[in-house]
């Protein structure tokens, strides 16, 4: 076991991690931040997506020890302290961008990363960026619509809800 220290959602945290402890295990089991989900555990589905030093990564495919000294943001760090949702989260609520909600933390983290890189993406760019995030409920339509809305673009012309 080695001691791992990182900043998670703005707070410095430390814990013990074995060599084979994944970042997602450290977040969920050591820090009890269970908003980050494990879907496939094979880096296909993206439910475990978090930001490490500002970059979108799959926390099931990175070791906790590799995140030592980094700045990690999880879904719990997206809303303001008073509970006010982030722009992306609010758009997912407004446009029904989820059904069961399992993939949603990863979708929100991916969408937030996208809008940081590309503040006004086209619909095609949104769909392309979400290649690594799988949703089995929605058919993606309202997820894409939510992200377009979060970017401040008019989503009225998109097909009816």
């Amino acid at each position: 076991m080695t001691k791992v220290t990182m900043t998670v959602n703005g707070a410095s945290v430390s814990g013990e991690a074995a060599g084979n402890t994944l970042l997602v295990e450290f977040l969920r089991e050591e820090l009890r931040l269970t908003g980050t989900h494990v879907g496939c555990d094979t880096s296909q589905c993206g439910a475990c997506s978090v930001h490490v030093d500002g970059k979108l990564v799959k926390s099931c495919t990175m070791f906790a020890a590799e995140a030592d000294g980094t700045d990690v943001i999880t879904i719990e760090g997206e809303a303001a302290e008073d509970g006010t949702l982030s722009t992306v989260q609010q758009a997912f609520q407004d446009h029904h961008g989820l059904q069961c909600g399992f993939c949603t933390p990863g979708m929100v983290m991916a969408a937030t990363a996208l809008l940081k890189e590309n503040p006004k993406p086209s619909e095609a760019e949104v769909r392309h960026y979400l290649e690594g995030n799988i949703c089995r409920c929605t058919g993606y339509h309202n997820i894409v619509k939510s992200i377009m809305a979060a970017s401040g673009q008019n989503v009225e012309p998109m097909a009816a809800e």
Partner: peptide, 8 residues
């Protein structure tokens, strides 16, 4: 891959 894979 996808964006997250490309970041690692």
């Amino acid at each position: 891959g996808d964006p997250a894979v490309r970041n690692r």
